[in-house]
């Protein structure tokens, strides 16, 4: 129990707050809102399932050599299609069978992971940077800047995403990863810009921003210290959920022959090729398609978990 002798005003609040606070400090140290979000996240099975999947996928993307020694580009026509998957030959080149040109499907699936993840992460990073920056400028400064950026956003938003990207990509003959990333970013930044703009507008109206302004804080300080940290959550949520979408967009483009170009390895290209012989050799389609679905699923699930943790109101 607190001592009762302290009757000064300075101590009044403490005396009563003490008993409850002793317990409080023991079980929880200073907890930031990010810390709270992490706490929420840690308590979601969905987060752990997607996290484990993503760790494996990232490992595959970073070190494909760890998972297979086979060369995904080397075709041996003796293996051509005919050998069916040997489902017991774990991690062997013939685990998933061979494709039409006698290349190991397992090796191709493994080596294709890097490009898919690179495109997904690359587009998300670029889109978040570009859209986030434009949205922040529009939301924070308002006025003419806002009008110009918002109209620009509307114009880009009006262009059909896949169609527009295809038109852009058609101009390139050698389509490397960065080309696809740039093409998807070119039309993909609008939704992030919109979300960021509105959350920045909400954040900048808060009293603590006014308080900083009253103290004479600089624009950079208000923007990066007060507005941005409080406006970031919705942007992160939208970006995480969109990541899976970019991966499937890349596969779609590759399927249509407008994504990555050979000899780059991509699930989309494999799906496209396998679809030609789907009746006799469905397995050639199943494995790359399955990997794609699993990856997109993992990212979307992560996005959902992040949203629930960062923005409980949206649930």
């Amino acid at each position: 129990m607190p001592d009762t002798s302290s009757t000064t005003l300075t101590a009044t609040e403490e005396t009563a707050a003490a008993p409850a606070d002793v317990v409080k400090t023991e079980q929880r140290k200073p907890r930031s809102l990010w810390g709270d979000a992490w706490f929420e996240l840690r308590h979601r099975p969905m987060f752990w399932v997607s996290a484990i999947l993503l760790v494996i996928l990232l490992l595959i993307a970073a070190f494909p050599g760890l998972f297979t020694s086979a060369d995904p580009t080397k075709g041996d026509l003796t293996n051509h299609f005919l050998s069916k998957p040997e489902l017991t030959h774990f991690f062997q080149p013939d685990w998933f069978g061979y494709d039409g040109q006698g290349r190991s499907i397992y090796a191709r699936v493994i080596h294709g992971t890097r490009n898919s993840i690179l495109v997904g992460v690359g587009v998300t990073a670029a889109v978040t940077f570009l859209g986030g920056l434009l949205g922040m400028l529009a939301g924070y400064f308002g006025g003419l800047i806002d009008s110009v950026i918002s109209r620009l956003t509307d114009i880009f938003f009006g262009i059909p995403f896949l169609l527009g990207t295809m038109v852009v990509l058609n101009a390139f003959t050698d389509r490397k990863v960065y080309v696809v990333v740039l093409a998807l970013t070119f039309l993909g930044w609008t939704s992030i810009a919109r979300v960021t703009r509105s959350s920045v507008i909400t954040a900048k109206q808060a009293d603590y921003v006014t308080a900083a302004r009253a103290l004479g804080a600089s624009t950079t300080r208000m923007l990066f210290r007060h507005v941005m940290p409080n406006a970031l959550a919705p942007t992160i949520v939208v970006a995480t959920i969109a990541l899976g979408g970019y991966i499937s967009a890349e596969a779609t483009l590759s399927y249509l022959g407008l994504g990555l170009s050979e000899p780059a390895i991509s699930w989309g290209i494999d799906i496209s090729e396998a679809s030609k012989a789907i009746r006799d050799n469905p397995h050639a389609l199943m494995f790359p398609a399955g990997m794609l679905t699993l990856t997109v699923f993992a990212f979307i699930m992560l996005g959902d978990a992040v949203r629930d943790a960062l923005d409980p109101k949206l649930r």
């Binding site: 930031s32 009293d207 006014t210 308080a211 009253a214 103290l215 004479g216 007060h226 940290p229 409080n230």
Partner: peptide, 18 residues
């Protein structure tokens, strides 16, 4: 600005939660 300060109405929005 140093010499004139302000105390706000709403203690829930006047402090940066982060």
């Amino acid at each position: 600005r140093r010499n004139i300060q302000m105390v706000f109405q709403d203690p829930y929005t006047s402090l940066n939660p982060r």
